[in-house]
Design a protein around this nucleic acid. Structure first.
Lengths: 87, 87, 87, 87
DNA sequence: GTGGTCTAGACCACC
DNA sequence: GTGGTCTAGACCACA
């Protein structure tokens, strides 16, 4: 048991894209696909932590990337929302 | 001092055997002896640098040797651990 | 001794601007003033930690703000540099 | 104890005395008794939530009371500590 | 409950 | 040495 792999895959030596980029890409895809429609609330940071099996810091790195692209926006005390207008 | 062999009593590091091998051997011994038991956390790279009076690159050479033998394994953000299973 | 203030000032209840914003403003000022000229190397993240008495994460938040404004840029394994061209 | 008051044997929380006061009194007692010695770390807000079966807001009300009396003090990112000096 | 700030470390990739 | 990624928490402001 208990080896020291990170993502438990079967591949030998992947390029190891950072976890936060993988999360960002995943969310980006959901937004593109309309699973997360404009105006929709994203799962909370803590939910995303559980879903992706990482800590809040890593999730926030992913969300920061989406915010930089203006795909989502935060609202203090309420959550994050998919941006309505598309540039 | 120094006759033919130079494993020297008190000098800090022999000029022949690479420092990283000496560090690796030292850690290997501690694992064999159970000082570092399976599952135990190794000292951090920086701790080992201080302890052995060398730079990180050298320490990492030593650790790479132990990893190649699957004696220890790294976990991102947490540290290095003595491998549980024995091959 | 040892009370629980954060910035050791004498004020009663300041608005408490986040530490990273204070650091960012400080560096921004040095760049504007030419103390840090275009092409210059910034102090390392770890140096800035000591200088401002905080951890790396906080320093990186400040640096991220400057990078967002394209005032500085990172180079893997070398350091951060003040951007040459001014927009 | 309990003469006029009804601190009730087994029920979870009295309907009269606010929960936050009960928590504050409990922590105050632990500090007086030295269970929580000067300089000691208090349990985290979330731990106290679990321990007392209430939400964070309530725990924070209790902690605010202790802070007002300068019995404990918060340190960003580290926790709350029992104040060293006694007024 | 939410997101925002912060501590105190770790290992990783690269020079 | 540098910056890059990550862990595992904490308290803070706001609703």
């Amino acid at each position: 048991m208990g080896r020291f792999v990170r993502d438990g895959g079967t591949e030998e030596h992947s390029p190891v894209r950072p976890v936060y980029q993988r999360i960002a890409a995943d969310l980006r895809a959901q937004i593109s696909a309309g699973v997360l429609a404009p105006g929709a609330t994203l799962p909370s940071e803590r939910d995303l932590c559980e879903r992706y099996g990482c800590v809040r810091f890593t999730v926030r790195q992913a969300l920061a990337a989406l915010e930089a692209d203006d795909l989502v926006g935060p609202v203090q005390g309420k959550g994050r929302f998919v941006t309505s207008r598309r540039p």
